[in-house]
Design a protein around this nucleic acid. Structure first.
Lengths: 155, 155
DNA sequence: CACATATTGTTCTATTTGGAACAATATGCC
DNA sequence: GGCATATTGTTCCAAATAGAACAATATGTG
């Protein structure tokens, strides 16, 4: 009996936390291979890419905002900020009213990088979603939206 | 304008990879807080818990099987195996026909630990799913199953 | 059988990660 | 205003992580 003859996918449907297990598996399947190519081609690690992604969708954010959005600790964000500043993908300006915090913005270079990289995630997402019909995709969209709003408020 | 007055949840519905972003966010929300308590209370890290979880659902597995199922590198599994052996949660026996590999099994202690810990994930899962109706949960179940099977085959 | 290639599990090493403590600044309360 | 408490971003350090090389074993092909 070798690994190739044993069916390791049965666990998807037969464990005590089916949804948790499958959502976690899906998340890994969607992002890990793409992060690997981003690391290889652009030298950005996960924290740095997340920072870029967040800043691509808000005009300005503080480091604390990014930590809240991504769930990563502030020191990881802080490191990412410095590296992305060095590379010119983001810029920082101190807040006039609050000396503790600083506003982060994406630069034109950063936005161009984001546009290139996000396509890789879109392709991977498309591969997975091709298993669903149009109607099923709309169902998924609604269900996910309800779940993330629940997750964002109930924690 | 402070973080508390800015609505950082708008990104859920307005980015180029909505499903990827939301699934990844959900996965973190489901597992990270629980892993933290498991680390604190039992000293198990993520790799060690995953090993226990896998072995709780198959009579026996090789380290390579666990690596395939979880997507983690073999050296991480290897480390986990040794620590879990030391703690008596799993046992190992060499394969008679293939001198390279060894079969891993969960012990009674390991199974008892699994039963206790999986409840924590069930509780967290229940909190999130409470946002859905019975019918919606069935829909989610079907959609997730299609997606994970697609992910497991198309990679 | 002999030799090239593949697979399993391990060790070594560099990078990533995150908790904790810290300085600077802000807020609340008397 | 003055002092206790909270918040932001940083540095320090220990743990987790994963790539690469490795030894042992297995497989395949002549």
């Amino acid at each position: 009996m070798s690994a190739s003859t044993r069916d390791l996918t049965t666990i998807f449907a037969s464990n005590e936390i089916r949804d948790t297990y499958r959502i976690s598996f899906l998340a890994n399947s969607l992002i890990v291979p793409v992060y690997d190519t981003i690391k290889r081609d652009e030298g950005l690690n996960r924290g740095e890419y997340l920072l870029l992604f967040c800043l691509a969708h808000f005009p300005k954010l503080t480091a604390q905002d990014v930590a809240n959005m991504t769930g990563r600790p502030r020191n990881s964000i802080s490191r990412g900020v410095h590296r992305m500043l060095d590379q010119g993908y983001i810029q920082r300006s101190p807040d006039a009213d609050d000396g503790r915090q600083a506003w982060l913005r994406i630069t034109a270079d950063g936005r161009a990088l984001h546009k290139r990289l996000v396509k890789r995630f879109q392709m991977r997402e498309g591969e997975l979603l091709s298993a669903l019909s149009e109607q099923e995709r709309r169902q998924l969209d609604e269900l996910l939206q309800k779940l993330v709003l629940q997750a964002a408020t109930k924690r």
